[in-house]
Amino acid sequence: MSGSAIQARCLCKRFGSVRAACGVHLDVAPSTFLALLGASGCGKTTVLRMLAGFVRPDGGSISIGGQTVVDDTTWTPPEKRRIGMVFQEYALFPHMSVADNIGYGIRPDQDRARRVAEMLDLVGLQTQRDRHPHELSGGQQQRVALARALAPEPAAILLDEPFSNLDAALRVRVRSDVRDILRHTGVTAIFVTHDQEEALSLADQVAVMMNGRIVQTGPPHEVYRAPADRAVAAFIGDANFLAGTAEGRKVHCELGELIAEQDHHGPVEVMFRPEDLLIIPFGEHRTATVTALQFFGHDQLIHLRLPSGATLRSRLLGAPGAYQRGQQVSVRVNNPAVIFPS
């Protein structure tokens, strides 16, 4: 679509024999928060760095705000792209104060002092303006990095694994702070992450990347509910897989006849999420055996084995102690299952 804030077409990049990105397409609508999700080494950081202009693609094109910044004949250096970036290690200038860091990118024709004050307000660091980066906590450094990237009013901002350097307790709070700040400014943003929970909970759109390609793009619930293939299903959230045969919307497998999301005929792989697998302790066909229990507090994961040897997992809310290892139970799939032709 023509109204994209960021558009990438057929981006390719190899480093020696390593293919880091291959035919990457990306359309990010204005004011969208997009998560570029993938395992480490899948090429997502390379895509980000191509957008920022630190890596020159071998082929393909990028346009930002409708303006082409790179294609076969065009090359715009990073400083002319009007793209902000928050680095994984923040990359704050250690010899400058917080205010100088934030003011670094503001153009001379702008009212620097006013803009710096605005940004400090936005991220809530007014009292830290004269501190140096090493005197700040990880979360504060993160906010300075964000303010510095936003200060020149960029067309979009890129965040590279922005929460990976924070400890678990801080991460949850900083995540929502960052999302609120980005919502407030209405800026288009892309963030790279390997954490599917982070991607699903924060982003408006999730682009799943594997082996240098983007394999699926969509809103979080869609990517979770209707993964494009088996690999995406396995990567995003927990998944149970069973072999089966589809006949239209019906699919036969070891658990009997299930309802499928899609029409298909022939051999398939059936996928359903652990929270859709219900356990009936005293049901009729008690064919599944409980092999392990993992208690997480808010829920628990029950590991089951079927007579064929296939293993399944069921996620239950609360009720610890209801099941024991070795217990025979019957199971049922609650929602329509996803099928992948095999």
Partner: peptide
């Protein structure tokens, strides 16, 4: 990354050299 951050914030390579790299 510090130099990239400088470039990213709209400064050319020589300006980044003078304001970031050499002072450090």
């Amino acid at each position: 990354r510090l130099e990239e951050a400088g470039r990213n914030l709209g400064r050319g390579p020589w300006s980044v050299l003078a304001s970031i790299t050499l002072p450090l």
